[in-house]
């Protein structure tokens, strides 16, 4: 599969601050790729370089097989900091952005009406942007980002500030655009969200790539080899199970956790547990992206930094 985005050895500094350091990454064509990392990780800087809003100090950025500048009209971009011309009418604003992206006015007229229906905002074409609620404005901005039917769509925190109903509408459209074969780069620091909708994940921290792969490959790569058991009898004795060690259950919940020994087949241990005691449920624990990311931070920056990131994520 060819890459819609190819970044090779890109660095970008602002004065003394190094925002992106020797970054390499590929976004496969047709993928829905999560671009993840905490605040200040370098996501927005990287995206701005993809949009040729700013230029890399070094390295090479290729978008849709050409330079970022030449590909500008083939990219749709919803920035994190949303904005509309408050005094402009909705139709006029979307039409203006569409025209700047090279679409003819005659085509835009019909397309805008169709899309307003699809995002459940009918009959607002002639209303001024300032008259809309924040959520409605956000949908108008989303519309402006995709009205020119781009091949690559970059969405920076597309769900922030949306209520669940509107988030579902936007999520459905993102899914449709993905099904049509468009490449979507979805930037967020809400990792569970990305885990749900993305088929590929790129994670950066302090300007460097720390993870890159499909969701399942990342989960298997960071498999904690832990089995989660919900026994019928909470006082059952599983200490005699060979090949797994009971992890102290500190949160006093109804389930127990057992870590598999090295080289031990998980299915064999599962079978032994089921034979040893009746259970309501039993599963091999998959790592969440949050856990994977925190582990990565802990490896690179130490446990103190990881605790800080965990604290930040708990507030999201």
């Amino acid at each position: 599969m060819t890459a819609a985005v190819e970044i090779r050895g890109v660095s970008k500094s602002f004065g003394e601050t190094k925002a992106v350091i020797d970054l390499d990454l590929d976004v496969p064509t047709g993928s829905l790729c999560g671009f993840l990392g905490p605040n200040g990780a370098g996501k927005s800087t990287t995206i701005r370089m993809l949009m040729s809003i700013i230029h890399a100090d070094s390295g090479n950025v290729q978008v849709l097989g050409t330079s970022a500048l030449k590909a500008k009209d083939r990219i749709g971009y919803l920035p994190e900091e949303r904005g509309v011309y408050r005094k402009m009418k909705v139709g006029g604003f979307v039409e203006y952005i569409g025209k700047l992206k090279g679409v003819r006015r005659s085509i835009l007229r019909k397309r805008i009406d169709d899309w307003l229906e699809r995002v459940e905002l009918p009959n607002i074409r002639n209303r001024r942007c300032e008259e809309l609620s924040k959520g409605m404005q956000q949908k108008v901005q989303f519309l402006a980002a995709i009205i020119h039917e781009p091949e690559l769509i970059i969405l920076d925190e597309p769900f922030s500030g949306l209520d669940p109903v509107n988030a579902r509408v936007i999520g459905r459209i993102i899914d449709e655009l993905h099904q049509q074969g468009r490449t979507i780069l979805f930037s967020t620091h809400v990792l569970p969200q990305a885990e749900q909708i993305c088929d590929r994940i790129i994670m950066i921290d302090e300007g460097k790539k720390v993870l890159d792969g499909t969701v399942s490959s990342i989960q298997s790569q960071f498999d904690p080899r832990v089995i989660r058991i919900e026994p019928v009898d909470k006082n059952c004795d599983l200490s005699k199970i060979v090949g797994a060690t009971l992890i102290e259950n500190t949160n006093k919940s109804d389930h127990l956790l057992m870590r598999l020994d090295d080289q031990i087949d998980a299915t064999e241990v599962l079978r032994k547990i089921v034979l040893a005691t009746p259970v309501r449920g039993i599963e091999i624990v998959k790592p969440t992206l949050d856990e994977v990311f925190i582990e990565q931070v802990a490896r690179r920056r130490g446990t103190k930094a990881a605790d800080q990131v965990r604290e930040e994520m708990s507030h999201v």
């Binding site: 949009m51 040729s52 809003i53 500048l69 500008k72 009209d73 990219i75 971009y77 920035p79 900091e81 949303r82 904005g83 509309v84 011309y85 408050r86 952005i97 700047l100 992206k101 901005q141 402006a144 980002a145």
Partner: peptide, 17 residues
């Protein structure tokens, strides 16, 4: 200033230099 203040600048710069 208005374009900067109401954050529409980045949208514009995604379409024009």
């Amino acid at each position: 200033i208005e374009e900067k203040g109401n954050k529409v600048m980045e949208v514009l710069l995604s379409a024009v230099s």
